[in-house]
């Protein structure tokens, strides 16, 4: 069930540091982090090995649609901006395998997303989690600021003012200007 095997050395398991995930959030104690990373590496390594054995889960495990339902909410950090459920690279197939096995273990979607976000940073999530509150706050600020600015200007402009220069000039043209009459006539002709 596989295409061509790409000789690929992605940061799927063992070099998450390259993805800048070490320094994320409130910097958990380094030891727990590295234990977690090590565990992640081991799980991935096992999965990569198991992947080399052809596997078709005909035994009633999670369906591919169930795997994709989770995968489409993830992006691997290697392939630029391709959702995980459709990315054709080998690295992404391995990620999907991780999702499959976690689903088989009975983990929920939220837990799996959290697992990947923990290992690789929040950038892998299709939608930023609440802890990235700035991402959600900024657009609200933009809309509020824009609307207030517009409301301010509307109020200023709606205030009546003295006759403007343009109108004064227009009034200084005598009513019975033959040229103006002709112009109006021609304009009227034109508009028909």
């Amino acid at each position: 069930m596989s295409g061509h095997r790409v000789p690929y050395a992605p940061a799927t398991g063992c070099s998450p540091a390259g993805q800048g995930s070490v320094a994320r959030r409130e910097a958990p104690a380094l030891s727990t982090l590295s234990v977690r990373l090590l565990a992640g590496c081991l799980v991935l390594l096992l999965l990569v090995l198991s992947w080399l054995v052809p596997l078709v889960s005909a035994d009633g495990g999670p369906t591919q649609d169930e795997v994709n339902a989770v995968a489409r909410k993830l992006f691997c950090p290697v392939c630029e901006n391709t959702p995980l459920d459709v990315c054709p690279t080998e690295a992404c197939q391995q990620w999907r395998e991780v999702i499959r096995s976690q689903l088989a273990e009975g983990r929920s979607e939220a837990e799996i997303l959290d697992y990947f976000a923990h290992l690789y940073g929040d950038s892998v999530l299709a939608e930023p989690p609440p802890r990235q509150w700035a991402a959600w706050l900024l657009p609200v600020l933009i809309v509020v600021a824009g609307t207030s600015a517009l409301a301010y200007w509307l109020r200023r402009w709606a205030r009546p003012v003295a006759v403007s220069v343009e109108e004064t000039r227009a009034e200084s043209i005598p009513e019975s200007d033959p040229y103006l009459e002709r112009l109006e006539r021609e304009l009227a002709e034109w508009d028909r």
Binding site: G20, F75, G121, D122, L125, A126, E127, P128, A135
Partner: peptide, 8 residues
């Protein structure tokens, strides 16, 4: 930390 915002 670089956080990339995605389609969602």
């Amino acid at each position: 930390e670089k956080i990339t915002l995605r389609v969602g």
